Computed example of a mutant assay.
Amino acid sequence: MQQAINSVDGVGIAYRVIGEGPPLLLAHGTALSSAIWRAFGYVKALRSEYRLILPDMRGHGRSDTPHDPESYAMDLVVGDLLAVLDALEIDRVHYLGYSFGGRVGLSLAVSAPERLRTLTVGGGSSRPQAGSFDKLFFPGCIDVLDNEGMTAFLDQWNAHRTWPLDAATRAAFDANDTRALVAYLRRSETEPGVPDAALEALDLPTLLFAGSEDRPRLSDTRRLATLIPGSRLAVIDGFDHATTVAASAEVLAVVKPFLAEH
């Protein structure tokens, strides 16, 4: 993997580039890494048409994993992705982000819209993030991770789910630096979200999607569709927040035509 450095705080961001064509940056969700894009079939499906830019978000995968919660402020995370684009000397990209990656995409779009050709956000939210992880995982999840570790976290999350965790997701979570993940989660809980007025001012082709069973994020995604001018909304039938990103055939059935138009 290659590495870009965020000049603000010196954090290193690991990334790889695969394929040929217009650049498309894929940003993964919480406690995952860029490896999911290959594991779930996105790389195979897109590499012949796009130059895929696959970063590991700070605190995840092979990127640096600071243990200070303030290292996970959203402006720093947005700066990480800009550092990757600058290292590659790429002015503008298509953007596909899921969950955490979707939230980062919304923030990137309002702070540096000139760097994006299109914006695709899956399972994202512009709302203040206080309490969001209790809804996505289970009540008290950050304290369980902090005090009891990843195995207890995964077991309790699995017990609260309708469907069992798939092996790929469990393995990806288990590979994390727990202290870094706790720092990221605690800092994320303080994020104020993206102002409605900033979203209403966007002039960027935007696709929004969420699973039909993603109760925490489907309503947030529908709300985003009312705020972002001209945005499109797709509901992926039969999947919840954890399983939607793994449903690559269903997701790409709506994403690929959108990208092809632009």
Rank of each mutant, 00 (worst) to 15 (best):
P66R: 02
R47I: 03
A73Y: 05
P22V: 11
A73E: 11
L46T: 06
R47V: 07
M74W: 07
Y50Q: 09
R38G: 12
G29T: 05
E70N: 10
S63G: 02
R51N: 03
H67M: 06
R38P: 03
L25W: 06
G41R: 05
L46R: 03
V17Q: 14
S48I: 02
A14I: 07
K44M: 05
L32G: 00
L54P: 03
L52A: 04
R16E: 15
E20I: 10
I53Q: 03
D64S: 07
P22M: 10
K44Q: 12
A27Q: 10
E20Q: 15
G19C: 13
P55L: 00
R38N: 11
K44A: 14
F40M: 13
G59D: 04
T30L: 04
A45K: 05
G21L: 13
A27Y: 03
G41C: 08
L26H: 12
G41K: 05
V17C: 14
R58K: 07
A73T: 08
E20P: 08
E49A: 12
D75G: 04
G12Y: 07
T65R: 07
L24V: 13
I36G: 09
P22G: 08
E20N: 13
R47Q: 14
Y50M: 07
L32F: 00
P55V: 00
Y42C: 00
Y50K: 08
A45V: 05
Y50V: 08
E49R: 12
Y15N: 14
A27F: 03
M57F: 01
L25P: 10
G19I: 11
R47H: 05
L54M: 04
Y15Q: 14
L25K: 07
A45E: 08
E70D: 10
D56V: 00
W37Y: 13
R47S: 12
Y72I: 10
T30G: 06
G59P: 05
M74V: 12
G21I: 13
A14D: 15
G59A: 02
T65S: 11
H67G: 11
V17E: 15
G41F: 02
H28I: 05
E70L: 10
P66K: 02
S71N: 08
L24Y: 15
R16S: 15
I13H: 12
G21W: 15
S34A: 14
Y50R: 14
G19F: 14
A31P: 04
A31Q: 04
A39N: 10
Y15K: 13
I18Y: 09
L46P: 09
I18P: 09
P66I: 01
